[in-house]
């Protein structure tokens, strides 16, 4: 493949994936309103389009045309930069995530991934760990007590849970022996005992790691039950209290894009990525892996919403104690056990 063709293909892939991601973000908001509505015995959005399906478009238009108010007391450079930082890092991390094997178009073998780097997982962790700056700086630059408290809570929480999150993934890395997300999925091929799929969640006690990862990821994305940074009963709206219009929407987009990244990583690392029954004609064989992957991501997003509809918010000291005194030791114990299992077998 020549360099020009490579650049053209890359641009098309980036545009396509960005479009799919942002649409998914918009419709995750719709899904959340709908599902939480049903759980609370109401309808959710119904007015715009059938089943309220055009609600995200209406929201987008509203965010664009609302007055973009900048309060006079803010520190302007960082106040403007903070939502951009949040959304840029949230969207960038999708670049290394593979959605399926490769498709062959006009004789060229095109992998379904923007770029495959052999430190893929570390890239995702690095980029998402930078996302905390968006939240922390918005809290500080707003120059308001609620925002500052929200920003402080968010940065403390995200730094604390990042450790448990990182450690929970090491077990999978030991089993797979590579950082490449494609390599990790390839390591989960086949079945054992004839019928159980060879996913990492079923191997070497990784089911514990799976739940540690899920819990820590809920805290990383500031979702209920860990949404202390924007606890509306005490902090109005936390770090984005002073934001309006599109800047506010950017924080929302960042949060939902991060949820999707977490769902992708969980599917790739623990549930075998895009593995599933593949049959039928050639075009179906190309599409099905992407479908199986999307299905897993959808299930994770649904669980996110389900948890939101079910659990109450933690108290802040409970949150910190849970992270440091329970989740972290558990993650370390799981790592030791996994290492022993790998060493013995």
């Amino acid at each position: 493949m020549s360099i020009t063709l490579f650049i053209i293909v890359s641009f098309i892939k980036i545009a396509l994936i960005l479009f799919v991601l942002l649409t998914a973000v918009a419709y995750t908001v719709w899904l959340e309103r709908k599902v939480v509505g049903r759980m609370q015995n109401r309808w959710g959005p119904t007015r715009v389009g059938p089943f309220g399906l055009l609600q995200p478009a209406a929201n987008g238009v509203k965010f664009l045309f609302k007055e973009d108010l900048t309060p006079p007391h803010v520190y302007k450079p960082l106040y403007i930069a903070a939502p951009m930082i949040a959304v840029i890092f949230a969207v960038t991390s999708i670049a290394v995530i593979p959605f399926g094997n490769s498709v062959t178009i006009a004789g060229y073998d095109i992998p379904l991934q923007i770029t495959d780097v052999n430190i893929g997982l570390l890239v995702v962790l690095g980029i998402t760990s930078l996302g905390v700056y968006g939240v922390a700086l918005s809290g500080w630059s707003s120059n308001s007590k609620y925002s500052l408290l929200g920003g402080l809570r968010a940065s403390a929480q995200m730094v604390s849970y990042e450790i448990a999150l990182g450690l929970s993934l090491v077990g999978v890395l030991i089993l797979a022996g590579t950082f490449s997300l494609r390599g990790i999925v390839d390591a989960q091929a086949g079945h054992f005992w004839g019928f159980i799929p060879n996913w990492f969640i079923f191997r070497g006690g990784q089911i514990v790691a799976f739940f540690i990862y899920l819990t820590a990821a809920y805290a990383e994305t500031n979702r209920i039950p860990f949404d202390l940074p924007e606890a509306e009963t005490e902090l109005v709206a936390g770090y984005h209290t002073e934001y309006s219009a599109m800047k506010f929407a950017m924080f929302f987009m960042a949060e939902y894009a991060n949820m999707i990244t977490v769902a992708c990583i969980a599917s790739l690392l623990f549930l075998g990525g895009w593995r599933g029954p593949v049959f039928g004609p050639d075009w179906l064989q190309a599409i099905l892996p992407v479908f199986w992957f999307s299905l897993r991501v959808f299930v994770f997003l649904f669980v996110y919403i389900w948890v939101r509809g079910t659990l109450p918010r933690f108290r802040y000291d409970q949150l910190m104690a849970f992270g440091w005194k329970f989740l972290l030791p558990l993650a370390i114990a799981n790592l030791v056990v996994t290492a022993l299992i790998v060493a013995v077998t």
Binding site: V132, S155, V159, E162
Partner: peptide, 13 residues
């Protein structure tokens, strides 16, 4: 960038 500097910013805040 992701851990140590976040702590710096945290302390300044």
């Amino acid at each position: 960038a992701g851990a140590i500097m976040v702590l710096f910013v945290f302390v300044i805040m």
